[in-house]
């Protein structure tokens, strides 16, 4: 069990993570749309920051927020059911490749699947981000994957 890590002043957290957050969003949404998503990501982080009790995995925490913002942004701008252009698929990062699959999953399963298969975090870390255990994170991810399989292979 990891010990509780004191939550740093927001400035230090922001300074340390703004680059990676913008990088992830720029790959997912393109530079232009990433700017709005960047601001929205850190706005959501600011709103949630007073309630944070443990800073042992702020990177995964803020990337989860960014991921949710990117999914919301895709939903907002893309008509239901439309798929991305075929030629753009090659350049998409792993997270983008699974996004159209996971966006319908319940929030915990979606976060667990994205963090496991999109960001390659181990289950203990995912558990810490989700405020549960590594076992619970493993169960959420496998339940999410089962749900996706049922959907893909009826």
């Amino acid at each position: 069990m990891m010990g509780v890590v004191t939550v740093p002043p927001f400035e230090r957290f922001y300074d340390e993570h703004r680059g990676i957050v913008f990088g992830v969003l720029a790959k997912r949404l393109g530079r232009q749309r990433a700017e709005d998503a960047f601001q929205e990501t850190f706005f959501r982080a600011l709103r949630a920051y007073p309630k944070l009790r443990d800073a042992s995995n702020l990177r995964a925490w803020v990337l989860t927020i960014a991921e949710n913002v990117a999914i919301d942004e895709h939903r907002r701008t893309r008509p239901q059911g439309e798929l991305p252009e075929q030629e753009s698929w090659d350049s998409l990062p792993p997270v983008a490749e699974i996004e159209h699959l996971v966006s319908e999953l319940p929030p915990t399963e979606r976060a667990a699947v994205v963090l496991r298969y999109g960001y390659d975090l181990d289950y203990d870390r995912i558990g810490a981000v989700l405020g549960s255990s590594g076992d619970a994170a493993r169960q959420a991810a496998s339940s999410g994957v089962r749900r996706l399989r049922r959907k893909e292979l009826p």
Partner: peptide
């Protein structure tokens, strides 16, 4: 990826303005 100074400033100002 580095965040432009302009985007960085806009975020800081907007966060303060939004309370």
């Amino acid at each position: 990826m580095s965040v432009s100074e302009d985007l960085d400033n806009r975020f800081r100002e907007a966060a303060a303005a939004a309370g």
